[in-house]
């Protein structure tokens, strides 16, 4: 018997490689999107800080804008620096 696969359409769900499931700021799932967005993934990306915490990009940007004095990570209170890995 010879079997030939002409086409295999599989199903997969995508997810962010992050050490948590939810955004520490908005509490929404990373694989979902921030409260201001409608579409997940490319449209509502994640960003990592050098402290290794990560958030929805829109969430951390909003957070940082609200912080007038120090730009701190809302989780560990270290100074926030984007980690462009």
């Amino acid at each position: 018997m010879k079997v030939r696969i002409k086409n295999w359409t599989g199903v997969a769900s995508w997810r962010w490689i992050a050490n948590d499931d939810n955004c520490g700021i908005c509490r929404m799932a990373f694989d979902g999107c921030c409260p201001d967005c409608k579409l997940p993934g490319d449209d509502c990306p994640l960003v990592w800080g050098q402290c290794s915490h990560c958030f929805h990009m829109h969430c951390i940007v909003k957070w940082l804008q609200s912080q007038t004095v120090n730009q701190q990570c809302p989780m560990c209170r270290q100074e926030w620096k984007f980690n462009n890995k």
């Binding site: 359409t9 769900s13 995508w14 694989d31 979902g32 997940p40």
Partner: peptide, 8 residues
């Protein structure tokens, strides 16, 4: 081929 879904 993959159907890549947003599980949420």
């Amino acid at each position: 081929n993959a159907m890549i879904v947003s599980a949420q």
